[in-house]
Nucleic acid binder design. Structure first.
Lengths: 119, 119
DNA sequence: TTATTAGCTTGCAAATTGCAAGTTGAAATA
DNA sequence: TATTTCAACTTGCAATTTGCAAGCTAATAA
């Protein structure tokens, strides 16, 4: 979710497999805890976009530290992950600031979605 | 474990309760993953000291980020935790370096325990 | 030498998870 | 317009994991 926007089926078809009922209950709990929120999908009413809240975005430093630890003790990291960590190690504070700012700006409400937020 | 050395009963009697069979299996797995290791207790053969390995000590940055996140979004932190986070916010890198160094020095093998490590 | 402590293991009920199939409403297709 | 497909779930049930209580063994303490 830090990398891109996600729908229910995006999660369901991700590499790390998860049972559909478990996915549903996890998403529900994360919404309840205000770590993520539901948004209408711009291209279809049938789709739901799950987006990080500010509280969720603030988990980024934790995720990065986990990835740095994993890099140190495991050898199966993806190339994308390795590339990201290279940047992180060059300037961790700067990286997190930039990524956080970008994620928060993506939270800006597109006009066509504004109404849905208020019902 | 980052704060002090721990025995099986220390964990069992901690504030966050855990069932004894679950504790046993968790400790076993953490030893298997080399996050912690068993040591003989200096004051009794009946006791076992569980200590963090270097791999375990390297989890400290993750724990600190989790605590910082918790401080931001929850209000039930202990006074000790708050005091620690105050130091962290003054100089995060310095704090982690110092704490890590100290934890690793505690790993120095006391003479009376050396033999036990090699069987 | 008997009692207690520390570190587990075992048995069983309760809760959680995984898998497969079904439901509902929106959108694409015929 | 009718029908099929798709996305997001829900439901039922078996398998796994967890929690609780009791028991077991070796090492100290009384």
């Amino acid at each position: 979710m830090f990398a891109k926007e996600c729908t229910y089926s995006d999660f369901l078809n991700a590499d790390e497999k998860i049972a559909t009922n478990i996915l549903a209950s996890r998403l529900q709990k994360l919404v309840e805890y205000k770590v993520i929120e539901k948004r209408t999908h711009p291209e279809s009413k049938a789709k739901v976009l799950y987006k990080l809240t500010a509280k969720g975005i603030d988990l980024l430093p934790i995720m990065i530290e986990i990835d740095l630890w994993a890099e140190k003790y495991f050898s199966n990291l993806s190339d994308g992950m390795k590339a990201m960590l290279k940047k992180v190690k060059k300037d961790k504070v700067g990286f997190i600031k930039k990524a956080t700012k970008q994620l928060k700006s993506e939270k800006a409400i597109a006009p066509e979605n504004y109404a849905a937020l208020h019902r």
